[in-house]
Design a protein around this nucleic acid. Sequence first.
DNA 1: ACATAAATGCAACAATGTTGCATTAATAAT
DNA 2: ATTATTAATGCAACATTGTTGCATTTATGT
Lengths: 136, 136
Amino acid sequence: MDAAKILKKRGLRITKIRVAILETLAANLQALPYSKLQKDLSRFDRTTLYRTLLILRDKGFIHKALEEKGESYYALCSNCTSSMHNHNHVHFKCNRCSTVQCLHITNKLDLSIPKISINSIEIIAKGTCSACLLAD
Amino acid sequence: MDAAKILKKRGLRITKIRVAILETLAANLQALPYSKLQKDLSRFDRTTLYRTLLILRDKGFIHKALEEKGESYYALCSNCTSSMHNHNHVHFKCNRCSTVQCLHITNKLDLSIPKISINSIEIIAKGTCSACLLAD
DNA sequence: ACATAAATGCAACAATGTTGCATTAATAAT
DNA sequence: ATTATTAATGCAACATTGTTGCATTTATGT
């Protein structure tokens, strides 16, 4: 993954923390909790991390996979842009090892409720991940 | 709604803040953000509110309908107990007026993913609520 | 009314969110 | 390559929420 090239292609300045965040997220299969990003990227100021996460989210590079107990989990986007965020996948959290992952599903989920206009649907599943199932 | 009676029936002590929380939530159709509870119940200590919310959640009286941007939204449970939490409903947030409500749906949502054991599924829908649609 | 277990309020601290502002860095223009 | 300009960064500061320990008060069964 060439984070610099990706940033450039999408018209964003190439800065150290942006490259670092993208590479950190790319290096993990799971979504990463804020606290982990904070720790891994502690060479940067906390405010900068905070603002950079906002920008990368806004521009469609990353998304918040889950927010739970005051902690946000971040993951790379696969197909988003500034104008279009489509996260048609399920966010799964393992109750045992606490990892969070994005699961791409084929099932199309349609939900319609009278008198309400629904723009987006988010699904959060919890259970036991394959690694923990195997560890039994 | 007789909060005291409900608490007693479920074996919890009847205290002012418990009654107040249950009545506050019962008085609203929507789920209430923590900040609103905090404000309405400011006559009680913040720690007590925090701990009481934990207890009422644990005992199945209330549930966290949504956690977003660091803010938790709470609502009454309809059929939960200490041992059984079943929230088979959708949590809906209106993007315009920011209200959060629990929508009871009939559609059964089944999701199965290979190699993973799923225990619970939560659905969060966002869009425009009926009141805001009418206000156009 | 009393004993006892539980709930409360207070103090204190941690983590995250958030803003303003001066400094520094990235890019475009020369 | 140097400079101008625009954006990003780091620092300080403060708000909100989460969390724990402990002394005091309250709810309830006897």
